[in-house]
């Protein structure tokens, strides 16, 4: 299936200007307090569904006057650069957020999960910039069989996974998992990056 129209342009725009988008969204939500937290994904329900990026990121429909405000001139180094998949060679990867929402992206072979997650503004951190020196891009592969298809984590990755919060049998570091044909359809869960304690937890 060819990618939806405008998809690659849109994604390029995103990957080139993440720093800008980060601040921009932030500014937008000020005017729209009801949309806090800013990363409000669209719930997909119990069934997995493919989302193209324009559905995922309604914020770009905000008036261009605000979305183009350029606050930062620093290039953001913390995300990689995604490749554009060749038509017919798109690989699908699904991220399940900690709220249980699913997002599927069509990506090129060789891109790693951290870059994909960050380029699509999922709540995924790469404190060490994807150099396998921290555990902030921890993901959990949902399917054991799929996990077995991945190349074995090396010692360095396992050393970092040992420190990951909420480690499971099928945990990996997103920066070390590169998309390839035999894992087309991979589905990973993003563990909570906070302990998620809300006011209600204390009542």
């Amino acid at each position: 299936m060819p990618p939806p129209r405008g998809f690659s342009i849109f994604r390029n725009l995103q990957s080139q200007s993440r720093a800008r988008l980060f601040h921009t969204t932030a500014a937008d939500s000020t005017a729209l307090p009801w949309c806090l937290p800013t990363r409000t994904p669209i719930r997909s329900g119990a069934h997995s569904k493919t989302f193209t990026t324009h559905i995922l990121r309604p914020r770009l429909q905000f008036p261009p006057s605000t979305s183009r405000r350029l606050f930062s001139t620093t290039p953001c180094l913390s995300h990689g650069h995604l490749h554009t998949p060749k038509p017919g060679e798109e690989l699908k990867v699904t991220f399940v957020t900690k709220e249980g929402n699913e997002f599927t992206f069509e990506v090129a072979e060789g891109d790693n999960l951290l870059d994909i997650g960050q380029a699509n503004d999922l709540e995924m951190e790469g404190a060490c910039g994807g150099s396998c020196a921290c555990s902030t891009c921890h993901v959990i592969v949902e399917d054991q069989d799929m996990y077995d298809l991945l190349e074995e984590p090396d010692d360095d990755e396992n050393d970092m996974l040992d420190l990951a919060f909420g480690l499971t049998e099928t945990s990996r570091l997103g920066c070390q998992v590169k998309m390839k044909k035999d894992i087309d359809g991979l589905k990973v869960k993003l563990p909570a990056m906070t302990r998620n304690l809300q006011a209600s937890d204390f009542k």
Binding site: A19, F22, H23, A26, F71, S72, T73, T74, C76, L77, S78, E125, A127, C128, G129, S131, C132, A133, C134
Partner: peptide, 19 residues
């Protein structure tokens, strides 16, 4: 000898440049 751990300063720099 752990320069990769210091990579997070790129994020901090971004935070600091927020208006």
């Amino acid at each position: 000898d752990h320069p990769e751990v210091k990579f997070c300063i790129n994020k901090f720099d971004e935070v600091a440049r927020h208006p």
